[in-house]
Simulated scan of single mutants.
Amino acid sequence: MQRSRGQILWLHSKRVSIPEIKAVTDFLRTTISTLIRAYNEGGAAAAVDRRRWNRAAAALNPEQRLV
């Protein structure tokens, strides 16, 4: 899971409101809501960025992902 997506889910778990999450992460409200819904329905695997054009390197290495 990408760092910013993880941040959104972490903030949501701390009961931070969606407008506050939007201000911190600069994601659209609909993107935040969709991510939270996907995570609630399918867990961490559902929160992964699956866009075909996303060729960015992972923000975390495999060891950091286990923490």
Rank of each mutant, 00 (worst) to 15 (best):
E20G: 05
P19K: 01
E20R: 09
R29Y: 15
L60C: 14
L28V: 13
T31A: 15
R55L: 15
A45V: 00
A57R: 14
R3P: 09
L60T: 09
Q2G: 14
I36M: 06
N61C: 13
V16D: 08
F27Y: 13
Q7P: 03
D49K: 03
P19W: 02
K22F: 08
S13Q: 06
L28A: 15
A45S: 03
A57P: 07
R37G: 03
S4A: 09
A38Q: 11
L9E: 06
Q7R: 09
L60A: 11
F27W: 12
A23K: 04
S4L: 11
N40Q: 04
W10R: 12
R65S: 14
T30S: 13
L60P: 10
R50M: 11
L60W: 04
L9V: 08
T30I: 15
T25F: 04
I36A: 03
I21N: 12
Q7F: 10
L11H: 06
E63I: 09
K22C: 10
N54V: 12
V16T: 10
P62Q: 00
L35Y: 11
S13T: 12
Q64A: 14
Q7M: 10
R37P: 00
A47N: 03
A44C: 09
V16G: 02
A45M: 02
A58Y: 03
R29C: 13
R29G: 05
V24R: 11
R50S: 09
D26F: 13
R5N: 04
V48P: 14
T30V: 12
V48I: 06
I36E: 06
E41P: 00
L11R: 05
Q7T: 08
G43D: 01
D49T: 01
A58K: 11
P62I: 00
V48Q: 09
P19V: 00
K14H: 02
R50N: 09
L35R: 05
L35H: 05
A46G: 01
A57Y: 12
V16F: 05
I21D: 08
I21T: 11
W10Q: 06
N40T: 00
D49W: 01
A44I: 09
I18T: 15
A38T: 04
D26R: 08
Q64P: 05
S13I: 10
P62K: 00
R52H: 08
A38R: 14
L9K: 05
F27A: 04
R51F: 04
S4Y: 02
L28D: 15
G43P: 03
E41A: 04
T31V: 15
L60V: 10
F27E: 07
A23N: 02
A38P: 03
A23V: 02
T25R: 07
N40L: 02
Q7Y: 05
L11Q: 04
L60H: 06
W53N: 12
I18F: 03
A58L: 15
N61W: 02
G6C: 01
Y39N: 01
P62W: 00
P19S: 01
N54W: 07
I18W: 04
E63D: 13
R52E: 12
T31N: 13
K14R: 05
D26Q: 10
L35K: 07
V24M: 06
R50I: 09
L35F: 11
S13K: 08
E20I: 07
L28P: 14
A23R: 05
Y39S: 01
R55E: 14
A58E: 13
A57M: 15
N61H: 05
L11E: 05
